[in-house]
Design a protein around this nucleic acid. Structure first.
Lengths: 248, 248
DNA sequence: CGGTCTGTTGAAGGATTTCAACACTCGTGG
DNA sequence: CCACGAGTGTTGAAATCCTTCAACAGACCG
């Protein structure tokens, strides 16, 4: 009765490979706070970063570690999670190339979350100290950083609102739409979320249990809104999912 | 059987009065992003602000309004709430003198939440445009603003974690401790939270219903952890509340 | 002192978690 | 190349937490 399907995920997106200098520059230019820089300036900034590679499911840093580095995703996906004492996890964000992570607060020098790779990744790292001198050097960067941070703040506010006012089904519908917009790629099976994504990942994003997430996903599949298999999801009817997430 | 008590809240803290220039300067100096400025600079910054007064339960701005002003609380308390379509409210933050509110994002020019007075208040306002020129003029401000914003981000992350992993009782215990630290004043009845605080306010902070909040508060009172009446709460045993919020 | 707002409490119903058993996928090594 | 095992997903049933509806009680305001 249950019929799951083998993965349609693109291997190139998941597997590790070297970050070419070209790719580095391109992704650095995508980071909003470097967007205003000229090409020579960008090259100088690029030289302040060094590249690092991780394989899937590695922890880049742990919550409460001393925060010395700022990082930018170049290739692959990184998830930020909060861990509780009892081992429960809350998935705060899933980052794609061009997004930064780390801690920008000058006073608190520990990471407030754990960063773990969702695929093989290539990231750029810079010491906080060096980043701060970039901030001094290019004042446009500080303002852009502030902007990015304010937006993250807003998206967390929205997340809190959904956690406290919406039932699980609507929360998951919303999460699927958001992931579709961010990681979606056209594919014969639908809008494929180009990312290994387990029921537990979804549950940790929605603030529910893996079993409940599975039940909701089964229902969505029943209603032909999505197609899903082990560690992957494709969206068939985004408008209807969006309606589910906000109706009533 | 039920015995509620009349309010021990201090009238001075709740009622409106003019903001003296002295008070303005003192509170502006308390805002972290102006902390590094010299006194003459502070006076100049002060001149860019103008004062405004509101009575209790007035809305300063609505979610999605065009965001033109940045504001600083000088006297009284302001709450930031998210409203859902069905009229539910989520209380995101309760601000005290020295804290700023508004929207710092340059790209999104609407408020992401509603600001409402919790007491009579005096606030300082500055046009975003003018604030941005302050940012350009004093680079230390931009970095300090970034710092404050990063910290708010972290506290929202913590809130999300609690909403998704803790039961209501622990969430409320934690909220009481936090409010006690922020608004607590020594008082014969215990550590009095100097703020009109209804069960609904607490419920909106904890992401639960007013009835459930009331039940939890009744139990805490039964256990002599708090003393509470209509619109006020005093904490008798902070260590035990803290233990409840994190035990198991 | 009466009306209104806020808080309390009970009881029923609903959403979600937890525990448990089983099914399917995929990689690995025989 | 197939079989096995570990990891992941599904589903059922019981238990739990919480919401909702409802009625009433205490506090504050004029």
């Amino acid at each position: 009765m249950v019929s799951r399907k083998s993965t349609p995920l693109d291997d190139f997106s998941l597997k590790n490979h070297r970050c070419s200098v070209d790719l580095r520059l391109k992704k650095l230019g995508m980071v909003p706070f470097f967007a205003d820089l000229s090409e020579p300036e960008l090259i100088e900034v690029n030289n302040a970063f060094s590249a690092a590679h991780y394989t899937v499911d590695q922890t880049i840093y742990y919550q409460d570690d001393s925060a010395t580095m700022l990082r930018v995703v170049v290739h692959g996906a990184v998830k930020l999670v909060h861990q509780t004492l009892e081992g429960k996890e809350v998935l705060l964000d899933m980052l794609k190339p061009g997004e930064y992570f780390g801690n920008l607060s000058a006073l608190d020098d520990t990471y407030s979350e754990t960063a773990r790779t969702q695929t093989d990744v290539c990231i750029l790292t810079i010491r906080m100290r060096d980043f701060r001198s970039l901030l001094d050097q290019y004042s446009s960067i500080a303002i852009a950083v502030l902007d990015v941070t304010s937006r993250r703040l807003q998206s967390l506010q929205q997340k809190i609102q959904q956690l406290t006012t919406l039932p699980v089904k609507k929360r998951i519908a919303h999460i699927l739409v958001t992931l579709g917009n961010k990681f979606g790629e056209k594919h014969p099976r639908g809008l494929l979320i180009q990312l290994p994504l387990s029921r537990k990942d979804l549950a940790d994003m929605a603030g529910t249990s893996a079993e409940t997430a599975s039940r909701v996903m089964s229902q969505f599949q029943e209603d032909d809104l999505i197609t899903s298999g082990r560690q992957w999801v494709a969206i068939n009817d985004k408008p209807k999912l969006l309606r589910i997430s906000s109706e009533d």
